[in-house]
């Protein structure tokens, strides 16, 4: 599998209660698939996707985490070095929305780095909405992050999550000037993990722009 050329390698994590559709969002985004039957994520799942943001390519290393609280000790170990965080709740599950602040706080407590975050209300396709758009907007404003409502089932606004996150990531990465130079790509387009990339994975400066 050749992963091709890219400008930056960035770690992204997806957080939220069990059953809100984290895996479905990612599978729709990365593999253009949807299934009602994804089993619960145990521990973490991992996906790769290259995102085009204007003239730049950002390779996203996405960690899909288990939602059940009992796995928090595992999922928390993935917070470190994350540049992007996608907080997901379900529009038809009030509790999952109420718990979003808990997820945000768990990030604030465990890392001093500022990260590019986005708040996602999923299951827009359902008729049984329990959380209003204005409530999501208000919460996103409080924590100064973009907000979007999506349907993984209908592939609605899924790409937008990553486009909006990508724009903020790009601003941040350009500010940091940590561009990974082209010469670390081998001729076959294969990529080797080296120190420069490790730097990208473990941000040293904070992000003021997102």
């Amino acid at each position: 599998m050749s992963l091709g050329y890219y400008d930056w390698l960035v770690k992204v994590i997806v957080l939220g209660d069990s059953g809100v559709g984290k895996t479905n969002i990612l599978t729709q985004f990365c593999d253009s698939k949807f299934s009602q039957n994804y089993t619960a994520t145990i521990g973490v799942d991992f996906k790769i996707k290259i995102l085009n943001v204007q003239d730049k390519k950002i390779k996203l290393q996405i960690w899909d985490t288990a939602g059940q609280e009992r796995f928090r000790n595992i999922t928390q170990t993935y917070y470190k070095g994350a540049y992007g965080i996608i907080f997901v709740y379900s529009l038809i599950d009030r509790n999952s929305f109420n718990n979003v602040e808990g997820w945000i706080k768990s990030i604030l407590e465990s890392t001093t780095d500022e990260v590019c975050s986005i708040l996602v209300g999923n299951k827009l396709d359902s008729q049984d909405r329990r959380v209003q758009t204005a409530e999501g907007e208000k919460l996103a404003q409080k924590y100064n992050m973009p907000f979007i409502e999506t349907s993984a089932l209908e592939n609605k606004n899924i790409q937008d999550i990553f486009d909006r996150l990508g724009q903020n990531l790009k601003i941040r990465l350009e500010n940091e000037g940590q561009k990974v130079s082209n010469n670390i790509h081998t001729q076959s387009g294969q990529f080797k993990l080296n120190q420069e990339v490790n730097q990208t994975e473990q941000p040293t400066s904070s992000c003021n722009s997102c």
Binding site: S18, G19, N37, Y38, T39, A40, Q68
Partner: peptide, 12 residues
């Protein structure tokens, strides 16, 4: 609720 959700997607 978690159990209900998991049962629906066990051995899919």
């Amino acid at each position: 609720k978690i159990i209900q959700n998991d049962v629906l997607r066990t051995q899919p």
